[in-house]
Nucleic acid binder design. Structure first.
Lengths: 153, 153
DNA sequence: CTCGTTGCAAATCATTTGCAATGGA
DNA sequence: TCCATTGCAAATGATTTGCAACGAG
């Protein structure tokens, strides 16, 4: 279990990111800190709008565009990963380790396959190297229907 | 080499699809036939707009919305696969076999990894089965920078 | 005090939709 | 003939952008 599973680890990661922001000459505003803490604490794959909505309770005045810009910043820093919008909007994943997603084509749910369930793929690695492709992340996306949606169909 | 590599195979696949359309009670219009033939003949991953542009030469009056609807039809029939819009727009892949894509985050290029370079992943299959997830396709998406873009950076 | 950041509203851009006209089956 | 399909234009919905006010460093 190397994942961020408790408050201590979360605070540590948030702190590290805020420091890195400062050292990059960028500012740590209350909005940013709130967005980052809330996002990193989630164990699912929220959209920018999800984050924005969740923020309303404590910070009613955070603009959606600020949420977008902060999430982009995290992606740029390698602290978040985008899950492409198969069903409507882009989702963001605070787990940046290479892993596998099961994406439901009906409800848009994104289910994580734990890393230890995913085998590495030596042959593909060789191909990537041969092509001189600089991989930054890889995700196996399995598209289909989750148990619930398959039941309804 | 089981892929569609020559004109005969292409015509055969186009014919099969047009027949299936008719048998589904749907109509085979000149626009549809043109879009389908042009799309299936491509060995890359065109966007709806790419197809529309290529069509202008021979069929100046095909609407972009018609291209969209025809491509959706192909996806629904299992004759095309969507590549989610990591960089701007959705691309469509006429190769529906499970395979692997290298997606360049800079120029948006989609490079295919030939099927025989991709190992199957037994552990993930087990997880999928255990979750009762009905998989319809899986694509390993490797995000990064192609040789050309990496050179420029 | 300085600029990076914010909130807002307007702009963009891909994709979808409404609808009357068209033309395959 | 009948109804699926078309072209067009307008609508949608996510994301981005322009800009003046704000506030962290």
């Amino acid at each position: 279990m190397k994942s961020i599973s408790n408050a201590g680890d979360l605070d540590q990661r948030v702190g590290r990111i805020l420091s890195e922001l400062r050292s990059r000459g960028q500012r740590v505003t209350p909005q940013r800190a709130a967005i980052i803490r809330l996002f990193l604490g989630r164990r699912d794959h929220p959209s920018a709008d999800d984050i924005h909505r969740d923020l309303q309770a404590e910070y009613p005045m955070v603009a959606l565009s600020t949420v977008y810009s902060t999430l982009s910043l995290l992606v740029e820093m390698g602290e978040a990963v985008e899950v492409p919008p198969e069903v409507s909007r882009t989702r963001f994943d605070p787990d940046v380790a290479d892993h596998c997603h099961l994406i439901c084509l009906s409800c848009g749910a994104v289910i994580d396959v734990p890393p230890h369930e995913v085998e590495s793929d030596g042959a593909t690695e060789n191909f990537i190297r041969a092509r001189d492709f600089h991989a930054v992340r890889q995700v196996r996306e399995v598209y289909g229907y989750c148990a619930e949606c398959a039941g309804k169909a």
